[in-house]
């Protein structure tokens, strides 16, 4: 199998609830890679709903001892 696409880590969004960086999957769900995965040098983000996966481009040193990024802003009411 080959990766669906190649995405830079800065184009992924941190999802505190999932504890993972995410990127839209064409099926409607999200490709996910956890901080623990990144610390281990993992490069594959998987979608829990389908067979597709992404190659994540990042610098391993940036995540060697990374702490959790801050939680994103809560949803604002209009």
């Amino acid at each position: 199998m080959s990766a669906y696409d190649e995405v830079e880590i800065e184009d992924m969004e941190w999802n505190a609830e999932l504890g993972a960086y995410t990127y839209p999957c064409p099926c409607g769900d999200l490709f996910q890679i956890t901080l623990a995965d990144l610390r281990l040098g993992e490069e594959i983000a998987r979608c829990p709903s389908c067979s597709l996966f992404l190659t994540v481009v990042y610098s391993a040193e940036d995540f060697a001892d990374a702490k959790e990024p801050p939680a994103p802003q809560p949803v604002a009411v209009a």
Binding site: E13, P72, Q73, V75, A76, V77, A78
Partner: peptide, 22 residues
Amino acid sequence: MCGDGSFGQLGTGDNQSRNLPF
């Protein structure tokens, strides 16, 4: 517009999300 604004895609000048059309 409404929904996810985290990439500025709502055009509001901020990156906030909105759950009612504005």
